[in-house]
Design a protein around this nucleic acid. Structure first.
Length: 271
DNA sequence: AATCTTTCCTGCCGGC
DNA sequence: TGCCGGCAGGAAAGAT
């Protein structure tokens, strides 16, 4: 369940192994991801060097000079760097083989991930062009959140998860950030004042930063790891804790459905 | 059988 | 009327 912190930790993990490396091969075992993996990838990529490993929202962007390889992990995807002779397993759909005898392998059981190529300006790509601000940059703060929630009749939890409002806030961290900002997830987004938007924007930043730190602390295990990022099993304050006591006040954490997704909150701490 | 994960797309609605 | 944005619901695969 890659949310932004997992994607950013993945980016940091693979970056030093990819930058400046030349691509020697491409293996597509199953092109049926969210969208078909382009058939021309091998022809296009072999011989190119990876110049940069960037991230926009939950998309990983491998800048190869002539174009950009766009990777998304979907709901169940993970990337690992492996020795080029590592035998593939059932859900290993894609390899990017490097000149130095290693490869970057995408494993994705549910196949909601994506691998795409664009040779245009990456920011103009349809998947990226309409996205909201990055939560961890100065382009996102309480004023921006306030402006972007005006006129919104949906709940703040659902609006937070809308990538046109702000990117990278998935189901887990939406609940967690709202807890830290003491805001009930059912609150109408457009009715939240500028002060509470300030608290919420800060809570989002801190929640995501903490999760990245938790994942990054075991980065050296990243290469050749088993792909199951157990190090992300951090302690949540509310997510997944329905029926348990709130860690702050002891009230019983509730679980509700919002837009077909589960939300968790403390009825005493979050008003 | 229901649930969980991401996010794009479709179809409907209201406002101007 | 036509256009636009908001919003609900649906879809994809597989593990549990």
């Amino acid at each position: 369940m890659p949310e932004l912190p997992e994607v950013e930790v993945t980016r940091r993990g693979i970056e030093p192994h990819l930058i400046g490396r030349r691509i020697a091969g491409v293996t597509v075992r199953n092109p049926n991801l969210r969208w078909p993996v382009p058939g021309h990838l091998e022809r296009t990529l072999v011989g190119l060097k990876v110049h940069q490993v960037a991230r926009r929202a939950k998309y990983l962007l491998l800048d190869c000079g002539e174009g950009t390889l766009i990777l998304h992990l979907g709901m169940s995807g993970s990337l690992r760097l492996l020795s080029a002779d590592t035998p593939p397993q059932k859900h290993d759909h894609f390899d990017l083989v490097l000149e130095n005898g290693t490869l970057l392998r995408l494993t994705d059981p549910r196949r909601f991930g994506a691998i795409l190529w664009t040779s245009d300006d990456i920011l103009q790509h349809p998947l990226l062009a309409q996205l909201g601000p990055e939560p961890l940059t100065s382009g996102f703060d309480g004023d921006v959140l306030y402006a972007r929630t005006r006129g919104r009749g949906a709940s703040i939890k659902e609006v937070l998860m809308n990538s046109h409002v702000v990117v990278g806030v998935g189901n887990i961290y939406a609940s967690e950030a709202l807890f830290h900002a003491s805001i009930n997830p059912k609150t109408t987004a457009g009715r939240i004042g500028v002060g509470r938007c300030e608290n919420l924007a800060q809570a989002i930043k801190e929640t995501l930063k903490l999760a990245i730190k938790a994942g990054g602390s075991s980065l050296r295990d990243y290469v050749n790891s088993d792909g199951k990022p157990g190090y992300f099993q951090q302690q949540y304050w509310v997510y997944g804790r329905a029926g348990c006591a709130c860690r702050k006040c002891g009230a019983i954490i509730r679980q509700i459905k919002q837009g077909q997704r589960s939300s968790f909150y403390c009825p005493h701490c979050q008003k």
